[in-house]
């Protein structure tokens, strides 16, 4: 009843091979088996966005993806965004603009926005709001989060 599968998953550049229960979600695998607790679990039903990671470059919720289905993929989590201690420009923007209160939504927001800005480097405010509409933040009213993503988009485009 508790069938296990062998999986090989690359997370933040390191490859892990492991036996996981078919019932284990990717978020639980990351948090419990790999101790990567930066990815948060706010709901477990795909409705809050706090568990968003990049799977082969695409942002998606990891609580409704069984870990074994991620076999062979490349995952990037919040722990893989900074370069050493150097934060990414988007992370900097979150810190600078006061977009972080309790911070529990932050990893998911940063992952979502990282993927989003790759596709749409100079979004409008409304596009940013749409892009993060799958995420719940209960602390900030989203005001400074939207500002942060906007600020980062300006920096990224001017830097290039």
């Amino acid at each position: 009843m508790n069938k296990k599968e062998r999986v090989k998953i690359t997370v933040n550049g390191s490859t892990f091979e492991s036996l996981v229960s078919r019932r284990k979600s990717l978020v639980d695998f990351l948090r419990e088996d790999l101790y990567l607790t930066g990815t948060k679990k706010g709901c477990g039903t795909g409705d809050c966005g706090s568990c968003v990671v990049l799977v082969n470059g695409e942002a998606r919720t990891s609580c409704n993806l069984p870990a074994y289905r991620a076999n062979g993929t490349e995952i990037v989590t919040i722990e893989g965004i900074a370069t050493g201690r150097r934060l990414s420009p988007l992370q900097e923007a979150f810190v600078e603009s006061g977009a972080i209160q309790c911070g529990f939504c932050t990893p998911g927001m940063v992952m979502e926005a990282t993927a989003f800005l790759k596709q749409n480097p100079s979004p409008s405010e409304n596009e940013i709001r749409e892009a993060i509409s799958g995420h719940i933040c209960r602390c900030t009213g989203y005001v400074k989060i939207v500002e942060a993503i906007f600020m980062a988009s300006q920096n990224i485009t001017t830097d290039d």
Partner: peptide, 24 residues
Amino acid sequence: TSVRHPDAEEKVSGGLIYGSDYSL
């Protein structure tokens, strides 16, 4: 003056251990 949250860097990089992250 605006002083940011003392844990902002840790939060934004996923390093801060919250209650539900804690394990023994």
